[in-house]
Design a protein around this nucleic acid. Structure first.
Lengths: 141, 141
DNA sequence: CTTCTTGCAAACCATTTGCATCATT
DNA sequence: AATGATGCAAATGGTTTGCAAGAAG
């Protein structure tokens, strides 16, 4: 958490941008909240905690957070973006249940390994990737 | 191609929908064109061939095509959807170059296999999946 | 103090939808 | 003929942006 703020501060500094309280607030909210959340979620959580940041500022901050590598933007098939923090190596992908909307996170070392080999072989320098599986979870099938 | 139209006709029939010339036109255009294309591409190609289908009809038809399983909707990170036809088993995923925009298709049996096992193990009934890698192609890195 | 930020509301852009007219079965 | 489908234009919904007022370094 402190770690994340420091990293963000360093990133902002390197771009001559300022660490405002709104930016800090948004970052904290994402890191306190475990999973993926969207702009509306963020807006509500902040309101509940009597903190403030306009929708515009949230969008602008999220872009910075994604660019800094602290946050990942993911598509869960809802027609709008979700965001989740990235801490260290806990990389994972998403299974989305088309009926109940549940999102199951998963990760697979073999898949990641195959992926890296693949990029290496084709000379592709990977920045990010995202794997989504859509279907029905065991409670809904 | 004829195959695709027949499949679509069967699908439409099963839902008491009609095979109109606009729907046939859109389907043909997607199957004639090799790769992934968006609504704007479709609109231009059709205009060039003096065929017609409104934007609304294209959107409506694409939804049906996706639902019928003949076409796949993919996210190439452009802020809008792309579509590509699905013929048999030639399943593939996408690497997108963030600089030149080039899209490289790839497929990996090991990944597909790991994936299927994963779903099986967790009792998840897979409908579709999509794997995107963003980065820089060998000409742009 | 200078430069960057914020919040607001307007603008944008992809996609969807209501409705009157037209085509397929 | 009856039921759907089309095209248009208006509506929608997420996201971006211009600008005047405010805060960080």
């Amino acid at each position: 958490m402190t770690q994340a703020i420091e990293t963000f501060a360093k990133y902002l500094n390197s771009k001559d941008l300022k660490l405002t309280k709104e930016r800090k607030t948004v970052l904290q909210e994402i890191f306190l909240h475990g999973g993926h959340l969207d702009v509306e979620d963020l807006l509500h959580s902040l309101r509940k905690k009597k903190k403030r940041a306009s929708r515009a500022t949230i969008y602008r901050t999220l872009e910075l957070l994604v660019d800094s590598g602290l946050v990942r933007k993911v598509d869960l098939g809802h027609g709008h973006s979700h965001y989740e923090h990235v801490l260290g190596d806990a990389h994972h992908e998403h299974m989305v249940c088309l009926k109940c909307g549940k999102v199951i996170e998963f990760s697979d070392k073999r898949i990641e390994r195959s992926l890296n080999k693949l990029c290496e072989k084709s000379g592709f320098e990977q920045c990010s990737h995202h794997f989504q599986i859509f279907g029905y979870c065991k409670d809904c099938r």
